[in-house]
C-alpha cells in the first residue's frame, strides 16, 4: 500500500498533519507535505486509510497494490 498526495488539490485544512504527523508534515504556508515514500509498513496502513478518509478536498489517496 502506498499514499499519494495531490499537492494541487491540498488547500491546507491540516487534517492529515493533525491525525498522522508520522505520515504528513506541513510547510510554512500550511500545505501538506507527504513524509513517506513507497510501500507503507503494516503498522501505518490503518492510519493512512484514516487520513485519506478525512481530507475535505480529496487530495489524499491510498493506492492498494
Amino acid at each position: 500500500m502506498r499514499l499519494h498526495l495531490d499537492a494541487e488539490k491540498c488547500q491546507g485544512h491540516n487534517r492529515c498533519y493533525a491525525l498522522a504527523p508520522e505520515l504528513f508534515d506541513v510547510d510554512d504556508y500550511g500545505q501538506a507535505v507527504l513524509l513517506v515514500e513507497g510501500d507503507l509498513p503494516t503498522e501505518l496502513q490503518e492510519k493512512a486509510r484514516l487520513v485519506a478518509a478525512n481530507c475535505p478536498e480529496f487530495a489524499i489517496k491510498v493506492l492498494e497494490d
Binding site: 488547500q11 491546507g12 484514516l50 478518509a53 475535505p56 478536498e57
Partner: peptide, 15 residues
C-alpha cells in the same frame, strides 16, 4: 466519528 470529511472551514481556494 472516524471518517469525517467535513467542510466546516469551506472547500476550495477560500479554505
Amino acid at each position: 466519528r472516524k471518517e469525517n470529511r467535513h467542510a466546516a472551514f469551506g472547500l476550495g481556494i477560500h479554505r
